[in-house]
Simulated scan of single mutants.
Amino acid sequence: MTEQLDSNGRLRHLLTLEGLPRPVLLRLLDRAQALREHAFDGTALRATLAGKAVCNLFFEPSTRTRSSFRLAATRLGADTLDFDASTSSTKKGESAADTLRTLEAMGVHGFVVRHPDDGAVAALARVAGDGTALVNAGDGRHAHPTQGLLDMLTLRQARGDDFAAMKVLIVGDVRHSRVARSDLHALRILGAGDIRVCGPQSLLPDDGTLSGCTVSGDFDAALEGVDAVMMLRLQRERMAQGLVSSLEDYHRDYGLTEARLRRAAPDAVVMHPGPMNRGVEIDAAVADGPQSLVLRQVGNGVAVRMAVLEALLAR
């Protein structure tokens, strides 16, 4: 997606991982790894974005993403603004583009945007002024690039950087998951050797998203020998839409239990982007168990988002 890059191949925006050059993705991962020691405390990097303003422009609720972006910007010394759509002029009919331009006029040139519509962040990037950088913090079911990056960083820390040797399984509601799409793009860019996807047919996409993946409806079979299991949240509205018969049936067929996890490789790791439905897609004993990297993912999110903001705004 060329609009993400300037004429020198540097990031202008981060809208999706689809089509992102491998060297750019690797630079972000390497920089995030180097920034981990600064992600949780300290003021050593406060000069990096001193005088810059970063706005969390969120049109949907968020805990992890919003909080980690705010921490990331603070660690780098930026001024931060939190935009709440429920109390803003969008309630009076102001468009997202006019909201962006209004904040740009106040000197804000870094925007972290979450929006319920596919492609909404890219549309905002097209009307943004020169020198303004946008990060997609999740748009509809389309993309969540920083989640994909933090998942790859977590996986690389746990399993090494030889993605060609990895067997990775993504489980659950892939059809409606922007996280799954970003993870799949990243895994392909990094050359993952065996990408498996599992879920009920009603929750699997039919738009080419799963090209090159081994697709199965049999969770037990798909788990055999995998190095990493990436569970997805079951969005409960899928029951109301008739896509899932019941939570009990879903847990029986696609819930990750300790017994089921034993089908994976002995040193397999478990990941989940959160929030988790314990007892539905994942049992508490697994989520809190020794193979779980769920909290490491959360921590890595701060470092990854520091790396992205630095790449976009530290000129």
Rank of each mutant, 00 (worst) to 15 (best):
L14S: 00
R22H: 09
R22T: 05
Q33D: 09
Q33G: 11
F40W: 06
T48I: 13
L49F: 05
A50Y: 13
L57T: 02
R64W: 12
T65F: 06
R66T: 02
S68Y: 02
L76E: 09
L76S: 04
S88D: 10
S95E: 12
R101V: 15
E104S: 15
M106F: 14
H109M: 14
H109K: 15
V113T: 13
D117E: 14
G119N: 13
A123D: 14
L124K: 12
A125T: 12
A125M: 10
T132I: 04
L134Q: 03
N136V: 09
H144M: 10
G148H: 11
R156D: 11
R156K: 14
R159T: 00
A164C: 02
L169V: 02
G172T: 01
D173M: 00
H176C: 06
V179L: 05
V179W: 01
A186H: 08
L190K: 04
P200N: 05
P200F: 08
Q201M: 03
L204Y: 14
D207N: 12
T209R: 08
L210I: 07
G225M: 01
V229H: 14
Q235E: 09
Q241M: 15
Q241V: 08
Q241G: 11
S245K: 13
S245R: 13
E248F: 06
D249V: 14
D253W: 12
G255F: 13
G255L: 13
R263T: 10
A268H: 08
A268L: 09
H272A: 06
M276R: 12
G289H: 09
A307H: 05
